[in-house]
Amino acid sequence: MIEFLSQPWAWYVSGPLIALVMFLLLWAGGEFGVSATLRSMCAIGGAGRKVKFFDFNWKNQVWNLVFVAGAVIGGFIADQFLSNPTALALSQKTIADLSTLGVNFEGGLAPMEIFNWSNLFTVKGFLIMIVGGFCIGFGTRWAGGCTSGHAISGLSNLQIASLIAVIGFFIGGLFMTHVLFPFIF
């Protein structure tokens, strides 16, 4: 059983399971939208005293923070008990493209040569992790949601606004990958 679960999960298993997560959250009385937790944490930290946007009753959002705590634990469980010993089946073209940029394919989920603590203090590491993180927080709040809130929840509910947001996600992602990456890497 563990061996079976430790294989990489196919897209047609994973996608419907993500939809199931959305359904379970609705059934439990919440909704599927991860980036809202960032706003809640700002409110818990006291930002509501100075900024109206964070002046709301964050206690109604505690369930979402518990959900993301579960997402951390789930990542830990998958890594400790269900990890796959073979390398990620990444496209050869992607491996070649990344190697032109100087990024080696290490076989894991993310390049350790980039996502490590000492790399934070390099220009490249700063841009990728600090500026990248800032864009995630700023952009998702401006757009009112992230991949879960717009691409999954919003599009599942046939919201035009979410479609525009997802188009935006791809404009930014494609511009970064194809135009800015050669300058950063």
């Binding site: 991860v34 980036s35 937790t37 960032l38 993310a110 841009l127 990728i128 992790m129 500026v131 990248g132 993180g133 800032f134 864009c135 995630i136 927080g137 700023f138 952009g139 998702t140 709040r141 401006w142 757009a143 009112g144 992230c146 991949t147 879960s148 717009h150 606004a161 979410s162 525009i164 947001a165 997802v166 188009i167 935006g168 996600f169 791809f170 404009i171 930014g172 992602g173 494609l174 511009f175 970064m176 990958t177 800015l180 990456f181 950063i184």
Partner: peptide, 19 residues
Amino acid sequence: YLLGGSIFGLGWALTGACP
């Protein structure tokens, strides 16, 4: 949605992660 989404997209490609 378009501008906020695009800024998030920049961060998504950089970090390889959404929230």
